[in-house]
Design a protein around this nucleic acid. Structure first.
Lengths: 246, 246
DNA sequence: CGGTTTGGTTGACCTAAGTCAGTGAAATTC
DNA sequence: GAATTTCACTGACTTAGGTCAACCAAACCG
């Protein structure tokens, strides 16, 4: 049967369509481990330590000793930090193909908490395995540096948003960032399903849940997008872009 | 003349008293390069590529190819990111003994802009030198990871502040964080000089310059501290701590 | 050394977004 | 499949902090 280009998949909460290794954030890393010419089908079977977390389950806690880093094969995860008195700031949402836990390497303990937003399948890479390979393979070290510095970049973007943007700019920025990341993983950039609640979005963007709803409603009234609960359809990405920032 | 413990130095803008290598953020790194038993006086002279930046001068710009990382020997630096339409978010203030520029390693270009707040002396470590050493010495890689993950930790703290704290908590957190860092570098934790303007503080903390002034005034009225322009004297650190977080 | 600029402070007023309260619809549980 | 919980949304009202304007003192400059 001849292969034909598949239509872009729509990210659905019920459907867990695992990313292929080629689309994965640690593909470069796995490829190194398995040699540059490894058969992809083989690689897919070689990757061990798959685990499944159900909605609400913790991948790791703050202060816990670093055991493993996680590549998300399908599903999504939020990570967050806490104040002493229990206030929470979500610092990132992570989707299929992204890698989390690496920033714990230096201190040998996790610096944030990670919780599955839906049923989520991950590749769990034990830390001793990672360290063994990274000692021998410079390109894996390179890959690790890249992932960490991407995290710093993402954090800087969020700081800019939290410190200097208004509610409209925040939500537009958020939606476009998600859209871009879905696109990179071969999902539709204009139609997708949010795995996080309005309250989580508000927490992440530093605004009240109600404000998130109001801005969604206003964007819909202005013809920028349509929403049906967690299903989002972006209608005018250009205008969203100009809102998200001059 | 017998040595006696020196009284804690007060950080003054005019006085540039360079940190000793032992107190420097890349000491572990330099020590590795020069062997574990290196004579400190020797190390001090071995460190080359010292440079001086005057107040307002740029260490590096966003997008510029990575040339070097910088250890601050004395003085202070702000780093910041920008929106397309020119809004600025200061993402960190860096003081004597701290290291900046490392997060540019992965992309090989700087991801933020760094500007001297006052006359600042740095050790400039060329990137090829750093890479050559890091390829051979695992402990230098370890050190680099540590510095990057400290940056992630600092960023997370700032995101928590920007997303979830009110004006009082923000300023208290800021002052205590500075105090702690001065203490680590053997300066007085209760009396120090701010090298940044009220406007910079406000920008960093995500609030207006005027609000910074008002909170300073209120803290002073409440007996928490005294200020004389940029000279700060913390009188009640415990109470500040309880304000900075429940 | 008089004039100008910069930075810090305060007061008066305004507004973006938060809080509170209530509703309906889905989703989950028993 | 009825009961319960969770989630999204909306309106009314409040408020923390922003904006604007003015002033003063220190620093800088020709």
């Amino acid at each position: 049967m001849p292969r034909r280009p598949a239509p872009p998949r729509v990210a659905e909460p019920e459907v867990c369509s695992p990313v292929t290794c080629k689309d994965c954030g640690i593909y470069g890393l796995c490829r190194e481990v398995n040699g540059p010419d490894v058969d992809l089908r083989l690689l897919e079977t070689i990757v061990r330590n798959r685990r499944i977390f159900k909605r609400g389950e913790l991948l790791y806690r703050i202060g816990e000793p670093l055991r493993a880093v996680y590549a998300i094969r399908c599903g999504s995860v939020k990570s967050y930090v806490l104040t002493n008195d229990g206030r929470v700031q979500i610092t990132g949402f992570h989707i299929t193909g992204e890698v989390i836990g690496l920033s714990a390497m230096a201190a040998n303990q996790y610096m944030s908490e990670a919780r599955a937003l839906e049923t989520t399948m991950v590749c769990e890479v034990p830390i001793d395995v990672l360290e063994a390979y990274s000692a021998e393979m410079p390109s894996i070290r390179q890959q690790m540096l890249k992932i960490m510095s991407q995290e710093i970049l993402d954090n800087q973007e969020l700081m800019l948003l939290l410190g200097k943007k208004n509610a409209d700019e925040r939500l537009a920025t958020f939606l476009l960032s998600l859209s871009r990341r879905f696109q990179r993983r071969s999902y539709s950039p204009s139609q997708f399903n949010l795995s996080m609640s309005r309250s989580d979005i508000g927490n992440y963007l530093g605004m009240a849940e109600e404000t998130v709803c109001r801005v969604f409603t206003r964007f819909q009234d202005d013809g920028l997008l349509t929403t049906e609960r967690r299903q989002v359809h972006l209608l005018d990405q250009d205008r969203l872009k100009s809102i998200s920032l001059g």
